[in-house]
Simulated scan of single mutants.
Amino acid sequence: MQRIDFHIDALESMKKYPKELFCIGNTDLLDNKKVSIVGSRKPNQYVREMTHLLAGKLAKQGVVVVSGGAIGVDAIAHKAAGAKNTIMVAATGLDKRYPAINRNLICDIEKEGLIMSQFPSKTPSNRYNFVLRNEVVVALGDVLVVTYADIDSGTMRSVEYAMKMGKKIYVLPHRISESQGTNLLLEEGKAEAIYNLEAL
């Protein structure tokens, strides 16, 4: 683990630039085009498949996929992009590989990709840390892709960050009864639907 001692321009869009930043891995990835992908911890099969296809396609085009390392959409996006094409932003100190179920994935990203955190060693998974983590995830990406979000969810708070930062937001199209958060964004004209992965 090392302290990041250089400035990351993308994080200037945050409400407040992080006091400290730590990392393990390849910081050159920060210079690449980046897309942040977020969504539910319990995605359905459609969301799992589309998230995997989308992240894999972006990585093949040389785009780095940024996410938060959580179970569900985050982990799918990291895996599909491949460890060397992904940045994970942790909500704990980097001495902890959290969540434990993603330990192997996190180890792979440490070796080939980049893991970042604004929290020093020994920082546990406190609830509010996830909110702070999400702001970094959104800030790093040139755009935000939301593959599934209920209206009252942490993912929708990530959307709020994106709107404040002036980031373009893309979502997957869903049935009326599903992913009501992203459907509302489409209804209000705050997001653009991804209808064709080939057009990306």
Rank of each mutant, 00 (worst) to 15 (best):
E112T: 00
G72P: 13
L94K: 01
T27C: 15
S153D: 05
V145D: 01
M1N: 02
G72L: 08
D142F: 05
T147P: 06
M50I: 14
L200A: 09
L58A: 14
M50C: 09
L11R: 00
L185W: 12
S158Q: 10
I87P: 02
Y17V: 12
N104I: 08
E20W: 13
L184G: 00
N134C: 05
T51W: 06
N129F: 02
M88Q: 04
K19Q: 15
H7D: 06
T27E: 14
Y161P: 03
Q2F: 12
H78D: 06
S177D: 06
V38M: 07
E188Y: 14
D28T: 13
P99Y: 05
E49A: 10
K122H: 09
V65H: 12
V171G: 02
S13C: 11
R175K: 10
V146N: 09
I37K: 13
V143H: 03
E135P: 05
S153K: 08
T51F: 05
P43Q: 03
D142V: 05
K16L: 14
Y148A: 12
A70I: 07
S121Q: 12
L94Q: 00
R48M: 15
A139K: 06
I109W: 01
N26H: 11
A55V: 13
Q118G: 08
P43G: 07
L144K: 05
E198A: 03
A191G: 04
V143C: 08
I109T: 06
I151T: 12
L132Y: 09
H7P: 00
L184M: 04
I87Y: 13
A149Q: 03
D142L: 01
K190Q: 05
L144F: 02
V66Y: 08
Y161E: 01
I71R: 09
T27M: 13
V137M: 10
R3M: 07
C23L: 12
V131K: 04
R3P: 00
H7K: 04
V131P: 02
V159I: 10
I194H: 02
Y195C: 15
N126D: 08
A80L: 04
K96C: 01
N104D: 07
A59C: 09
G141L: 10
E187P: 04
I8T: 00
